[in-house]
Amino acid sequence: ELSQDQQALISYIVDAHNKHRIPQDMAKKLLQEQFNAEENFLLLTEMATSHVQVLVEFTKNIPGFQSLDHEDQIALLKGSAVEAMFLRSAQVFTKKLPNGHTEVLEDRIRRSGISEEFMTPMFNFYKSIGELQMMQEEHALLTAITILSPDRPYVKDQQAVERLQEPMLEVLRKVCKLQHPQEPQHFARLLGRLTELRTLNHHHAEMLESWRMS
C-alpha cells in the first residue's frame, strides 16, 4: 500500500504534470491548420521550445529539485529534455483523441521531413507506450524519474540526484502493482521503455540534422 506521504507525492506530481503542458492554442494549430513544409518546420520548432519551457516548470515542482546544485539542475534538464519530449508526445498518441486527430498528427510528423530511419523507431516507441496503457500517475512519475537520472553528462553530485530519484521509483513500483495487479512485469516494462528512450535520445541529433537538411 501507498503511505500518506507517497499518495501526497503522487497527487503533487500529477498535478504539476497536468498544469505544465504545451499551450492549447499551439497544439490546436497543429491539428487545424494547413501549412507548407517551412511553416510546418517552424511550428514544430516552436512547439519544441515551448515543450522545454513547460518541462522546466514541471521539473521545478519535483520535490527537492530546486535544492540541487544549479549547474546540476541544468545538466539534468539538458540530458533529459529530448526523452521527456518523446514521453509527452507518446502520451498524446496514447490518449483517445477525437476521431481522426491522431492520424492528422501522425501525418504532419511523417511529412515533416525527418528521415524514415528515425521515424520508424519513434512511432514504434509511441506504439509500445500505448500498449502499456499507462495511467496519468505513471506518465508523470516516469517523466520525473527520467529527469532525475543521475548518470547524465556533467552531473557533479550524482548521489544527491539518486536520493531524489529513488523514492520516485519506489512509488512508481507500488503504483504499478496497484494499477496493474494482473501484470507483475509492468514496472519492469516501464523501466524498459527508459532504455528505449535513451536510444531515441542518442539518435536525436542525427534526426534533427536529417530534418534540417531536407
Binding site: F41, L42, S50, I74
Partner: peptide, 22 residues
Amino acid sequence: ASGNTIGLEAIIRKALMGKYDE
C-alpha cells in the same frame, strides 16, 4: 529571437530563471 535559433541550454537557463520569450 525566434525559438529555433536558441539552443537548448539557453532555453533551459532562461526558463529556470523564470524568463520566457525574450
